[in-house]
Amino acid sequence: MTVQDSATTALRVKELCVDVATPEGWATVVEDVSLAVDVGEIHGLVGESGSGKSLTAMAIMGLITHSQSARVTGGEVLLGDVDLLKLSNRDLRRHQGKDLAMVFQEPMTSLNPAFTVADQIGESIRYHLGASRKEARERSIELLEEVGIADARRRCNDYPHQFSGGMRQRVMLAVALACEPRLLIADEPTTALDVTVQAQMLELIRSLVERHGMAVIFITHDLGVIAEICDRTTVFYAGQVIESGLVGEVIKGPRHPYTEGLLRSVPADDDLPLWWIDGSPPLPGQVSSGCRFSPRCEYSKNECDTHAVPLRLSADGRAIRCALADDLSLNGRD
């Protein structure tokens, strides 16, 4: 297990809670999430659709404070020694884009349709690094080439709607990487990419990690990608961390039934019927008091439904939120 003293920890999230507005009132959708990402580490977040991954990411980026429909209700987000949640908007802006940058899950809504992509990539270079217009432009072209946009010199004058879905995603990556951030949060950055291009993007991210010790939070539902580039991984279920640990260990020996289920959903043999975890995850405001996975869990016992399960740290650096963890022997993949 890696040593986690503050010199090597790039980001530490402590007991983060986020509420969202529902017609019935506020509902907690991210609950007590804690994470630590080391310098030079790629940390994968996985979990079913709607489990709170994007909201966690946005909270870390300090993007939830302005919204009427979501609010951070507790926790700390420490980048180095600074608690990002306590910063004023003005101080936060100095960090956003420079020290921490994000690739959003929705490329079209986070790129501004009214500006060319060169303007958008160049903006933060000019703002944070004080580059001239011309320098910023040259750097933008370089970045576009790095993310594999052909004919970048000409295409940098195009507007976002003139790019294909996958290209927009790569433009977003270029925007995020523009100032070589210390922490990159990539929210499903490769969903629209075919495997060959995806491999290039993963390579690009990895090279920045190796060269500059960038820390990365990589949100994805693709366990293949997790296995490929992440060092550690945290599994979300219904807004809670239910398991975390080194990628290899989690995949080989999951200790939470939900992780086992996720791994089992990976098609192994094309002739086997598709498999999935029956039922669907609780939606905001519909969570029960006991273990949240219990209604879908094949190992569930009575006690699971009544007692909230704490996240327990085991000696080997794994964290598991399952009351039965010690008694179960679960199947991983290898």
Binding site: S54, M58, S67, Q68, E106, T109, S110, N112
Partner: peptide, 8 residues
Amino acid sequence: REVRDMSS
């Protein structure tokens, strides 16, 4: 419209 992304 309330938007998810509050990046701007």
